[in-house]
C-alpha cells in the first residue's frame, strides 16, 4: 500500500515537473499566439500574452496578402518546395548512407571525409558561385535551385545521421538475408529501410522544417512574388526602413506553424510505437 502511494506521488511530481518545464517552453509561443490577436501598438508594450480584446483583423489582412497573391499562395509554394525537398532527401540521403554504412568500396574514407567537409563550409561563401551556376542553368526564379540539390544528396547532415543509425543495426540481419539470397538492393529495401525508419522520419521532419523556415536561399533564388514562399511572404510584412505590419506578420507566423505542427504530431508517434524492431533484432 505504502509503496503504491509513494509511487503515485512520484508520478504526480514527475507530471508537475514536466508541466512546469512545458509552460516555460511554451510561454513564448503563447505570447506569439496572443500577439496575433493584438493591435500593433499593443504588441510592443504588453508582456502578458492574453489579449485585452480579441481582434481577428490581423488574420484577415494577413491572409489577403499582396497584389492578388493571397497568403494561401505562399503556403502552397512552400508546401511544394518542402515536399520536393523531403522526398529527395529521404530517397537519396538514405541511399548514400547505406553505401557508406554497409558497402565496401574504394575511396570510401575519402568520400566520407569530403561529405563531412561539405557540411563544414559556411553557406554564405558558396552562395554566389551557386547562384551563378543556377542562373546559367536558367533555374533562377524557379523552385529548382531549392529542390534539385536535395535530389542529389547534398545534405550531408542526413547522410551522416542515417549512417549512424544503420551502423547501429546488427550485421547479422544482412548476413542472414544474404544467405536467403537477397542482394544489396533487397537488403536495403527490405531490411535497412524499415529498421532505419526513425532516422528517415527524423530526416523528413527536419528537412520539412528547415526548408519551410529557410529565408536566405529562398530570398536569393525567388524573385517573382507569385513564387514567394512563406518565409518571404512573412518578411513582406516587415520593412525595417519604414513601417511594418507586425500584427498580420504574427498572425501569419502562427498560421504557418500549423503545417509543421500537424506533420510533427503525425510523425512523432513513430518514436513511441516505432516499428517492430524487437522481433527482427532477436
Amino acid at each position: 500500500m505504502d509503496t503504491s502511494s509513494a509511487f503515485k506521488g512520484t508520478v504526480i511530481v514527475k507530471h508537475i515537473f514536466i508541466c512546469l518545464i512545458a509552460f516555460v517552453m511554451l510561454y513564448p509561443v503563447l505570447w506569439m499566439l496572443g500577439s496575433s490577436f493584438k493591435p500593433a501598438n499593443q504588441i510592443f508594450t504588453e508582456i502578458w500574452f492574453w489579449p485585452k480584446e480579441w481582434n481577428f483583423q490581423n488574420y484577415v489582412s494577413g491572409w489577403s496578402g499582396f497584389q492578388g497573391s493571397s497568403f494561401a499562395r505562399f503556403l502552397v509554394n512552400s508546401s511544394l518546395v518542402s515536399a520536393g525537398a523531403v522526398l529527395g532527401n529521404v530517397i537519396t540521403c538514405s541511399m548514400a548512407a547505406y553505401a557508406f554504412a554497409r558497402l565496401n568500396f574504394r575511396f570510401k574514407a575519402v568520400c566520407f571525409a569530403l561529405m563531412l567537409m561539405t557540411i563544414m563550409l559556411p553557406l554564405h561563401v558558396t552562395l554566389i558561385p551557386r547562384y551563378i551556376l543556377f542562373n546559367n542553368l536558367g533555374w533562377v526564379n524557379t523552385f529548382a535551385p531549392l529542390i534539385a540539390p536535395k535530389w542529389v544528396a547534398t545534405d550531408g547532415f542526413f547522410i551522416f545521421l542515417t549512417v549512424q543509425f544503420i551502423r547501429g543495426l546488427p550485421r547479422e540481419l544482412d548476413e542472414a538475408a544474404t544467405i536467403d539470397g537477397c542482394g544489396s538492393v533487397q537488403i536495403f529495401w527490405r531490411i535497412i529501410i524499415p529498421l532505419a525508419l526513425p532516422a528517415l522520419i527524423t530526416t523528413m521532419i527536419f528537412t520539412f522544417m528547415w526548408t519551410w523556415d529557410d529565408f536566405f536561399s529562398q530570398l536569393i533564388f525567388l524573385s517573382d512574388v507569385t513564387k514567394y514562399t512563406v518565409p518571404l511572404g512573412l518578411r513582406l510584412f516587415l520593412d525595417s526602413s519604414s513601417q511594418s505590419d507586425w500584427g498580420p506578420m504574427f498572425a501569419m507566423s502562427v498560421l504557418s506553424l500549423v503545417p509543421c505542427f500537424i506533420l510533427f504530431i503525425t510523425l512523432q508517434k513513430y518514436f513511441v510505437e516505432g516499428i517492430a524492431t524487437s522481433g527482427l533484432k532477436g
Binding site: A96, Y98, A99, L103, C111, R130, A148, T154, I159
Partner: peptide, 16 residues
C-alpha cells in the same frame, strides 16, 4: 553496387 547507391550523391558532389 556502391557506385549505384552513391550515384545521386556523386552527381551532386561533382555538379553542385
Amino acid at each position: 553496387v556502391a557506385l549505384l547507391f552513391l550515384a545521386p550523391w556523386l552527381i551532386g558532389l561533382v555538379c553542385l
